[in-house]
Design a binder for these strands. Structure first.
Lengths: 348, 348
DNA sequence: CTGAAAGCGCTTACAG
DNA sequence: CTGAAAGCGCTTACAG
C-alpha cells in the first residue's frame, strides 16, 4: 500500500472521500467511512506527513530543542525525559507529536534553530537553557513561530511566553531556613556562564540576606560548572575561603554529589560540620548520605504546563487554553533532610 | 520571504535555477550561484522540508526512538544524549538531521513506531531497548525502512543490523577477575523483564563460572529493576541469601548507587567485606566511595558506529559505508577501582 | 547554462 | 454525500 490513491482505487471511491473519511470530517456516509477505516487499518495506511504538511501548512509536530553540550549531556539527564511525558500527555490530546531536536555540540544553537525553523519541520518550539541574552528568542519572535521558553530572558522584548523555576523562592527559603538555624556565613554555588538562572538566583540570595540584616559578601558566591565536577570544585573553593562559611546553597542538583565527595575527603560531614541545601530533588542525590535537604518538583506537571502555555499561543488551539496564562513561575517544595539539620547555636 | 518562488522572482530567474544553485548542482553559472546564495542568506530562505520531502521521497531526517517508560526516564538519562553527539557527527556529513522520538509512556511502542513509520517522518530509524522478541523489528523489516537496533533480538529472522554491548565480555571479565581474587560465591544482579541483555548476561556469567569449575547456583541470580532502587533491593536480597556470596556483579550502572546504600545500612563496606563490580562507568557512579570497579565505553563512538551501520544499510549511502559491517559487539574496557580490590584468600 | 513543466501525496473549496 | 480539480513548495528530467 503506497498512498491514498491506491487505497481509493481499491475501494473504488475518490481520494477526496477517503481523505474526508480518514480525517473525521462530517458529511461522509457512515457506511463509507467504515469501509475506508477498515481498509486503512487492513493495509496499514497512514497519510504521508509531507503531503499533509505541504497542503495544510502545518506539520502537527512540536519540537523540543535540546542543547547537547558536554555539560548538558553529563547532567540534565532525566530532566528532559521527565518533562517529555507531561508534554505529550497534553499534546496527544490534539494529535500533536513531540520530537526532541538535539543541537549538535559543534553547531551554534542559534544557527541550528534557524535552520529548523526555516525548514518548517515543526509548528512550534519549546526551547530550554535560556540565556540572559538569547538571540534564539528574537529569531523565533521575528519568524512568528509559536514557542515557549523554559527560562526567563531579557531578549525578545517581552513578546514571548516563558515558564521558569521559582529560583527566588528556593533561594529565599534556603536562606531563611539557614538563618533560622543560626547561620550567618552562607555560601552559594552558582553557575558560571550566561545562563539566566544564575543571575536570578544570586539576586534572590542577596535580597534574602539583606532582609535578615546580613551583609552580602561576593567572596561567598562560588562560580562553578553546573555539574558534579562543579560541585567538587565548589567544595574545594569553599575550603579555601577564609572566615569559613557554615552553610552552602547549591543551585544545581548534581553539584551535591561532587560537593559531598570533596567534603568527605576533607573530613567534613554535611549536616554536622556544614549545612548543605541542594536544589532540585534528584533520583541520584536521594542516595546521598547524609540525606540532602533539597526541593521537589514534578517534571511531568512542568511538561504539561509547558504544553498548555505553548498551545495557548497557537491560534489553532488558543481557544482551548485561554487560561494557559502567559508567564509562570514554577514552585518547588522543600524536602527537609539531614544535610542541614543541625543548629549552629547549639554547636558553637 | 516565503518560498522559492518569491526568491526567484526577486532575483528575476526561474525557480529551477534557484533550486539547482542552492542544492549545489553542477551546471549552474558561478555568478548566478553566488547571487542566489547571497539572496537566500539575506532573506533567510531555507527550503521548506515538506516540499522537498514530497518531491524527493526522502526526509533527510533520521529518528532515534526512545522509550519513555518511568524506568527509562529515571535511568538512561545521559545515555541517549551521549550517543546523540556521535550519531550527529556522522549524520551531519550527509546533511541528515537527527530527531529523537520519545514514545509516550501510555502508548504501545509498537503502535507508536508504526505510526511514525507510516507517516514517513523519517528516512531511517534507530531503535533501542530491544526486547528478546520485539515486534518492532518485524515491522521495520516488513516496511523496508532502514534501521539499526541497539541491542540484539531474536525477532526479524536475522534480517536486520544491530550493535550491542559486549555483555559476554563484561560478564566473563568480571567473573575471571573475581575468581582470580579467590571468590567462588559470586552473585549477579540481572534485570527483571524481557530485555534481551538480561538473558545474554546471565548466560555468559554461567559459562564463565563453569569454565572455572564453579557450579551455577540460580539462587545467586538476583532479578531486580534496572535502577538505583533495583540496586537497593539487590542489596536487600543479597543479605538474605544463606551461604552469603562474597562478590556481586551488577548489570546496570546505576544499581551500584542503591546497592552501596543498602550495604552501608548493613555496615558492609564494598571492597572490604564484599566485592562489587559495576557495569558501565557512569558520571554519577564515579563519585561512589569506595570507588567502583566498572567498565568504560565511549558513548560518542558508539553513536558514530550506530550511524555508520545505519548508513551502510541505506542505498543512498551504502557506497560510502561499505565496511559499516553488519552486526557489532561493542567492547567495554575494565576500569579497576577499590570496590573489588581485596583478595579473598588473604582475608579468610 | 537556464526555463517551463510535471508531479511528489495530500486536503479542501467547489459543484453537483 | 461524493467527485473532479486545484494547489501546497519543492526538485528534476527535458528542451533549448
Amino acid at each position: 500500500m503506497k498512498g491514498i490513491r491506491q487505497l481509493a482505487e481499491h475501494l473504488d471511491i475518490s481520494i477526496g472521500t477517503v481523505s474526508r473519511a480518514l480525517n473525521g470530517k462530517a458529511d461522509v456516509n457512515e457506511e463509507t467511512r467504515k469501509r475506508v477505516l477498515a481498509a486503512a487499518e487492513e493495509f496499514g495506511y497512514v497519510a504521508n506527513q509531507s503531503g499533509r504538511s505541504l497542503r495544510q501548512g502545518t506539520t502537527n509536530v512540536i519540537g523540543l530543542m535540546i542543547e547537547s553540550s558536554k555539560e548538558t549531556v553529563e547532567n540534565s539527564d532525566n530532566f528532559f525525559l521527565g518533562v517529555t511525558g507531561g508534554l505529550q500527555s497534553v499534546l496527544s490530546r490534539h494529535k500533536l507529536d513531540l520530537v526532541m531536536l538535539p543541537c549538535p555540540s559543534d553547531e551554534d544553537p542559534y544557527e541550528y534553530l534557524k535552520r529548523m525553523v526555516a525548514r518548517r519541520v515543526v509548528d512550534a518550539m519549546i526551547i530550554s537553557a535560556t540565556q540572559r541574552i538569547d538571540k534564539r528568542i528574537d529569531l523565533l519572535v521575528k519568524a512568528k513561530i509559536p514557542f515557549v521558553a523554559l527560562g526567563r530572558s531579557s531578549s525578545g522584548g517581552g513578546n514571548f511566553t516563558w515558564i521558569d523555576l521559582d529560583f527566588e523562592g528556593v533561594a529565599t527559603c534556603a536562606v531563611d531556613r539557614l538563618v533560622a538555624k543560626g547561620h550567618r556565613r552562607i555560601a552559594i554555588a552558582a553557575p558560571s556562564g550566561e545562563i539566566n538562572l544564575g543571575y536570578i538566583f544570586v539576586d534572590a540570595y542577596r535580597k534574602a540576606l539583606e532582609k535578615h540584616g546580613i551583609a552580602y559578601d561576593p567572596k561567598l558566591v562560588i562560580r562553578v560548572k553546573s555539574s558534579e565536577q562543579g560541585g567538587y570544585q565548589a567544595g574545594d573553593e569553599l575550603l579555601r575561603i577564609e572566615d569559613k562559611p557554615t552553610a552552602i546553597i547549591l543551585i544545581y542538583e548534581l553539584m551535591a554529589i561532587g560537593l559531598y565527595r570533596r567534603l568527605v575527603e576533607a573530613g567534613i560531614v554535611p549536616g554536622r560540620d556544614l549545612a548543605v541545601i541542594g536544589f532540585r530533588e534528584e533520583p541520584r542525590a536521594k542516595f546521598l548520605q547524609p540525606t540532602l535537604t533539597c526541593f521537589r518538583m514534578s517534571l511531568p506537571d512542568l511538561g504539561a504546563a509547558l504544553a498548555e502555555t505553548l498551545l495557548a499561543g497557537m491560534p489553532a488551539y488558543s481557544e482551548t487554553y485561554r487560561d494557559g496564562v502567559r508567564n509562570r513561575i514554577w514552585p518547588l517544595e522543600l524536602v527537609p533532610a539531614e544535610s542541614d539539620a543541625f543548629f549552629l547555636g547549639s554547636k558553637t
